[in-house]
Amino acid sequence: MPSTSLLLSIEALAAGVFLLTALGTVAARQLLTCFHLFVWQSLLLSASAALLGLALSSPHLLAVAAITLATKTMLIPWLLRKTVHDEVYRIREIDQVLNIPTSLLLALALAGVGYVFFVEMLGGMAVPAYALVNLPIGVAVLLLGAFTLTVRREAVAQLLALLVAENGVFFAGIAIVPNLPAIAELAAAVDVPVYTLVVGLLTRRIHSELGTTMVGRLTALRED
């Protein structure tokens, strides 16, 4: 059994890579790359939960790790592949409102502000070191996801951005509330696949009715 401090250092390392995968989804040009980055990121989330679970000997977190592994690295990718037409995954250049270097720069600035704000906020409190790592990184990933959602025009890319933002919140959650009631974990585990399914089916309906998944180009409804 490795020591607690070793487990926590590995967890901090995973946190760094977790942040990098989120930046990767901002920079990626191909939809399939985004898709793979999301799966890798979910794997890291699950690993972090497992490491924290071992370090704090919390069965709750081990359950979270198992649920994350099952839903986010297997069920959700499968659902996405099933519901959305293959044609969409062959998109080589995702349509964006901003070009990639600009959006990467803006995203970095946004994530930096969120990160610093939460580090400052926790500064005055007696907080365990892993919370000091996970909460600001979770917030930064949440902001990166929200930003990606707004700049991308492609339906599946928007959904993936939403899932990345959600991973960020869970990444913060495992460190700050390692003991959420089991029923809440279970409910959250059901909720995420359900919204993947709903949004996936909606994408499919849009694709079949309108012949495109470029939701950012739909602008019939607006103020004149």
Binding site: G138, V139, L142, G145, A146, L149, A155, Q158, L159, L162, A165, E166, V169, A172, G173, I176, V177, L180, Y195, V198, V199, L202, R205, I206, E209, L210, V215, L218, T219, A220, L221
Partner: peptide, 29 residues
């Protein structure tokens, strides 16, 4: 086309809102 556009914005934006609120709920806990 209008109804699908509306449904898309509704599902995506309110879910993003819910995810932001989730972080708040967890911090409250």
């Amino acid at each position: 086309p209008e109804a699908l556009e509306a449904a898309w914005k509704y599902a995506i934006l309110t879910t993003l809102g819910a995810i932001i609120a989730l972080l708040g709920v967890l911090i409250l806990y």
